[in-house]
Every structure is written in C-alpha cells, then in structure tokens.
Nucleic acid binder design. Sequence first.
DNA 1: TATTGTATAATTGTATACAATTATACAAGC
DNA 2: GCTTGTATAATTGTATACAATTATACAATA
Lengths: 228, 228
Amino acid sequence: MADNELIKEDEKHPIYSLQTKVFEKLREDILNGVYKKGDELREKTIGEQLGVSRTPVREAIRQLELEGLVNIIPNKGASVVGLSTKDLKDIYEMRARLEGMCARWAVKYASEKDIEKLEEIVDLSEFHCMKERYEKVLELDNEFHELLYNMADSKMLYHVMADFHHYLQVIRKKTLSSHERVINSSKEHRDIINAIKNRDEELAENCAILHIKNTIQNIEEHCLWPEE
Amino acid sequence: MADNELIKEDEKHPIYSLQTKVFEKLREDILNGVYKKGDELREKTIGEQLGVSRTPVREAIRQLELEGLVNIIPNKGASVVGLSTKDLKDIYEMRARLEGMCARWAVKYASEKDIEKLEEIVDLSEFHCMKERYEKVLELDNEFHELLYNMADSKMLYHVMADFHHYLQVIRKKTLSSHERVINSSKEHRDIINAIKNRDEELAENCAILHIKNTIQNIEEHCLWPEE
DNA sequence: TATTGTATAATTGTATACAATTATACAAGC
DNA sequence: GCTTGTATAATTGTATACAATTATACAATA
C-alpha cells in the first residue's frame, strides 16, 4: 500500500473525518489537473492510495458529483469532469456580478473595524509584493475577498463565492504572481475600500465588478487560461 | 418498519440509486419544512423510515451538508439548517443578476427554434392561467427558465441556477398561484423573448433582471415570505 | 441541591461482506 | 475476420459489523 498522506495529517487535524479529507484531496487534485477530464475514479484504487476503505471515498465522490466536478453513471463508476477554460471564464463573469453585490451589501453592514482590517490586508499585501513574496500576496488576497464576502452578511452569497473561490484558485495563483498585476489589484482593492468607507453602494459595486473584469483582462493579455 | 416509499418508486425509476433518492427526499422535506431548523437527522431513524440501510442515508446527508442545508458536527451528528427568509431573499437577489446574465448570453446563442419554443411555453402558460390550472403554469414557468438557462450554454451558470431553482421552488409555487401575477409574469417573459429576438443583449439582461425584481416585489406585497 | 464520576446506551465513523451490475477474455459459430 | 455467447473478473450498491465517540442515567459526594 502506498505511503499514506491522509493518516499522517490525521494527527494534526483530528477534527475532520476521513471523508472530508478525501473530498478535499480529490477536489484539489481535480482542480490542479492531477486527474484529467475523463479519468475514472475507482473507489478501491483511491482508497488504497490514500490508505482508507471505500466508504469515505464513496462519500467524497458523491459530494464531488454534486459540485459538478465528477460524473457518476450508476453501477458503472465515476469519471472526472473538471473545469474547462470556458467554465473558468463563465465563473469569472458570474463572480464579477456577485462580487459587485458583495461590495454593495458590505457597504450596508461594514463596521469601522472591518474597513481597518481591509486596509491592513492591502498594506501588508503591498509590502509582500515589494519583497516579491507572491505566495503571501495570494494568501492576503484570499483574506481580502474572504472578509469582503463575510461583510456582506449573507450565508448564501458566501456559500456561492466560496465555491467559486475554490474553482478559481489555480488560475489566481498565476495572476497574482505578476508584480504589475498585484500593484494594479492593490489599487483596485483600495478603490473598493474607499467606496465602502464613503458608504457609496453604487460605486462599491462598480469598483468590485471592475476589479474582476480587470483580472479577466489580465488573464487574457497574458494568456493564462489553462491549455486544454 | 414503516411502509416504504423509496422501494416502491424503485420499480418506476430503477435508474437512480437509493442514495440519490434519499438525497432528493430529504432535500424536498427540508425545503418544504417537514424537517425544521435544528432538527437532528439520525442515520438509523431515517434509514428505517425509508426502508434502507444507513449507508445511502449517510451519503445523502453528506451531500446536503455540501449544499449548506445541513450542518454536520463530527462524531455528533447532522442537524437541519434549511433556508431562512433572508436566505431566500438573498437568493432572489443573486438570481436576478444571474438571470440577467443568462438572458444576455442566451441572445448570443439562441436559435430560431429556441425562441419559438419559448413563445410556445408562454402561449401555453397563458392558456392554463385562463383555465386557472396553476400547477400547469408553474410547470411551464419551470420549463421557460430551464430553457433560458440552457440557451445561455454555460454549464456553470446552469448549475448555479438549477440549485437556486430548487431552493426557491416552494415560494414560486405560491407566487404562481396568483392570477394577476401570472398575467404580469407572462408579459415579462414576452419582453425577454422580444429582446432576445432583436438580439439586444442589454435589453434582454434588463428585462430578465426586472422580471425577478418584480417577482420579489410581488412576494413582498402579498407577504409570501415564509413565517419563521 | 448541585456536581462529579462512572457505567451504559446511543450514535457516528470506518471497514468489510455480500449482492447486483458491468467489463473483460476467449472460444464457438458464421 | 467478425460477431456472439458465456464464464470470469472487476466494480459498484447496499447492508452490516465493529470501533470510536458522544449522550444519558444515576449513584456518590460535598
């Protein structure tokens, strides 16, 4: 049996069930292209690879099916669907609009502390950008948007945005490795913050939409869409 | 053991696994308020009620957790989260924007046949409205939006909209039982169709947004939000 | 009474067993 | 050579067994 990553992590995070960990591992692997479109996911094989029985693997695959990342044919098996370039583009377009909604709603609910926190994140991000520590920049970008999603104070909106965020993770890693893009992104983040500060819903929405649209444009310009 | 609904349906739909059927049954029951917020979902109990073992129930509950309808605490159990009135409102707001996107994209991809089909649906709907057959009207409304979602030709957008659609099913049943609302809804549907016919993306988007906004307003006016 | 400890029961988490379905290999017949 | 039928293997679907965790009941103690 292969040396087993999941059980090792068990010691560190005994909070999560094996099922959850298998799910996250498989999702990660699908989104990162470890499994490619059409690959078949055999319960037994995956279970052996991860050192668990079929049960948690099955449960994980069922969840992946609900997310649309996997296709299950009853009594036959599961195969990887994954995300095409068009899927990613569509997600960005949806995200643009919903990010706008987020910013608009954040205006309504933002506390002074939230806004300070947003500014801190951007400050730190610019610092790490200067030092060219882009993993940190990505992390902080995640924090920025995560906080924004929380500020909107909507369980459902958060839920959708969190899903999108996972889907886009791989490509965001690329966009936020460009010094120039990070600089621009920071400016756009500050525009959003200022709009929220001034309690200007319309402006906040437009800034947030523009931010995502610019991200898309950047991806286009630098040909960062995944080759299929 | 209770008389068992799931196995009976087995004869009719042997395509779906028990797991799928348990999932759909539980989701339906949660959305319809059969299970209320906070109710605990015991695998053994539900399995006995439905005449299946714990395994498919477990898998179904895991899926419901991913949808956010259920909260699982490891080693403790699953409890119903369900949708609050605010959740429903937020979903409508998101849907308004994404429905707009749908209409916009549908303009790009709509075939003559699609448009004809849309018109047929509205014609039929108005006919059944006249006859006060509102279950039929609901069915056709579903068809209209389903087709629109398909016309947008986006797997991801369809996926999100399909989820929303399930979530809103209960309340849509109420709004489309009002003669007046159905009449207005039909007009709005025709506006959307005409915009698509004229290949006017901007107008199509705005009409679709307005359609959902009007739906929301109708719900407000008639106090159709669920009492909590 | 309130609290704590402990034994018991209930419940979940995981693994495994068995049934049902599907895939594969290969020989028989054309 | 190609199809078809059949036996075998592989895989999934479901149920169940067992382990681990959590809840419950209740007695002992302050």
